[in-house]
Design a protein around this nucleic acid. Structure first.
Lengths: 217, 217, 217, 217
DNA sequence: CATGAATGAGCATTCATTCAT
DNA sequence: GATGAATGAATGCTCATTCAT
């Protein structure tokens, strides 16, 4: 296990060691950050909502920004965890012979995660442009890792003629764009609209499949 | 001309009547809002950057939020303006016989606009979740208007077999997702990366075309 | 005519030379000062209410305090004017043989004035403690003048046995206290109560008359 | 003990639980409010005078107006406390057989209180016209309570022929007017003048006694 | 004369953070 | 570990006043 993986595992496990008060603080902060934004949320407000003293927040998190990172980092880590599988080749052969199967599984799997962590991911998306630390965390530990894995995957399916010949990063971009475009529209922009989830997910996958269709598909 | 169109025209023209100091305030505010976010930007900071007294800001914009709206509203209006064409059928027959032509024109056209108004659109995207007024402005005057036009468009191309049979809103969502996913990745997320714009734009269009291919395409 | 009287006459006449805008400013300022107090009223508010530009106020009155004085001083002058009669002895013999007659006339006369200038007198009472200029104006030009006249009056009626022997200033104090106590209660503290003005005025006069009764009354 | 009495007791006791800094804030605020008026006094000024940080004021009093109420309300309550005696009849029979005795005791008693709380009462009188909350507090909890008690008292002395037959409210008004007229003139309007307190108080009482004299007095 | 844009000091209030208890 | 009083800089906004037009 590399040093990098260790960090991610730590991030993932971090949540378990929280005291009761800490959990209340985190929950309250997530709620407020998601609703009004990080900058527009005051620590006193979080303290009040969490039912703790103002000082208690700063006992656990040196600064307000530390609190933000403590919220966002583990979710970021857990979000990419499934893509960071050591022997991905094996997985592919066994589980997803078709790119379509993989796509469907990914959509399914990350959708569950996204729904469970909706507010935190909202915060992440909102704050990433304004916090270099966050961006760094994201780029180095997450984006790169995922991209490397996906590149291998894409090449694997391209080799088998399932995906059109095209730079892997373009394939990845368009796939992600379509999937996350759907999830964001569905759960963040118009969550209260009347969606036929099954059909819409299927259409999205078909759209990607046709859009990227290779010679043998 | 309907009442709604009038409003949008007003928003668009609004920008021209600005005094010199007002322009400086707007420019400085855009810069700061885009860089640090609306909430994290102070009015004193904007004043300093604009080289005006802090009171001057509030003479022109009653509140900080008014300033935000004064920045974002006209750009929003001008962004959708080209889609709000009265006799769209005529336009389609004459100019874009193929859906692909339309797509290409749209990508081209809105890309220019997006590049010119990058920071303001960034602000809009960042702040829309936190300001009901903004959301309302967006939904009623913009989203609805565009969606209605696009629905007609999609049905037009579906009737001619160029687009797969599928609810128009799904087609619109996937088209937008792909185009804006590209523009956002290109100009907002990784602007400093080494992009081959021509090729990437072409790939995006092809991706959409195949993804939505109808029986006669 | 002394120098002092000149000043008072000037104050009294001052009001006639006002331009239309000036009158509007004065009226608006009186309204606002009376309602919210001098300090809590902003010049911009007065300008808005008067329908003039903010700068116009300062063209006529160099400062906000000048405006206050311009409002309060003439009313103050006109309030004491009737007491400043040169040959008061004559007046007394002819018009008010009894102290009671004088009292009744005074109450009647000043009541009318008070009602007409209620808001301005309210402002005067409110602001006198905080503005040395106002206090000076009041003490030197008004209080002293009235007191001197009243002393003569009291001594006149004391000599005729109508008023108890007692320092004149005590007589004056108690008379004023009773009369203005009534007027203030009636028109400022409980104006909306259901008063029987005739009876209450009569009771007040009787109270004073008995309270100050001399040997021959 | 009724609910209303409880509230007043609370107001009276409130002062005792103040922290050291709170006391300093109150003292400084009273000084400044009395000197320049509530509106013309800034919180930063109070903080400086009290030797505390400006934020400290707002930790204890949510707004500047809260601070005003915290100053004025308890004094108001303690001012009327002595009049709110449960078995007032008993008190009258035992202590003050003559109305004159009662008057003298009241003047004595409230004079001490007034002198001790001069600045606060000044603030109260100044601000009552501009703060509905204050007016409400005064009217409901104070004015009414006192008036009811005094009505009983007046009727008691009228029954014994010591006071002229006249509506109780007129008697109360004139008595108060005379007593507070004296106290206000003595301690607020001309405090620096050379007063013979004993004689002046006696004259005031005699004035009231004669002014209200009944058949048997 | 009248205007209203411009000013910058000042306003009440909030902020993240500290620290003695 | 938890508290909450205390801080003082910073916040969005208002103020009385000036001055070029």
């Amino acid at each position: 296990m590399t040093d990098r993986d260790l960090k991610i595992d730590q991030l993932i496990d971090a949540e378990e060691e929280l005291t009761d008060k800490q959990k209340k603080i985190i929950v309250s902060a997530i709620e407020s950050f998601a609703e009004k934004g990080y900058s527009a949320t005051s620590t006193s407000e979080i303290a009040k909502k969490a039912g703790v003293a103002e000082g208690t927040i700063f006992r656990h998190y040196k600064t307000k920004k530390d609190l933000l990172l403590a919220i966002v980092a583990p979710v970021m880590a857990r979000f990419v965890a499934p893509f960071i599988i050591k022997d991905i080749q094996k997985v592919l052969h066994q589980d997803y012979e078709q790119f379509e199967d993989f796509l469907r599984a990914m959509l399914e799997n990350r959708r569950d995660f996204l729904i469970k962590n909706l507010p935190t991911l909202k915060i992440l998306m909102q704050e990433i442009p304004f916090h270099p630390e966050l961006r760094e965390l994201f780029k180095e530990h997450i984006a790169l890792k995922i991209f490397t894995q996906f590149e291998k995957l894409v090449e694997h399916y391209q080799a088998r003629g399932q995906i059109i010949e095209m730079p892997a990063y373009s394939v990845v971009r368009m796939t992600f764009t379509s999937i996350f475009g759907y999830l964001i529209a569905r759960y963040m922009i118009l969550p209260e609209a009347d969606w036929d989830d099954e059909a819409e997910a299927e259409r999205t996958i078909q759209f990607i499949m046709h859009g990227l269709a290779g010679t043998k598909s």
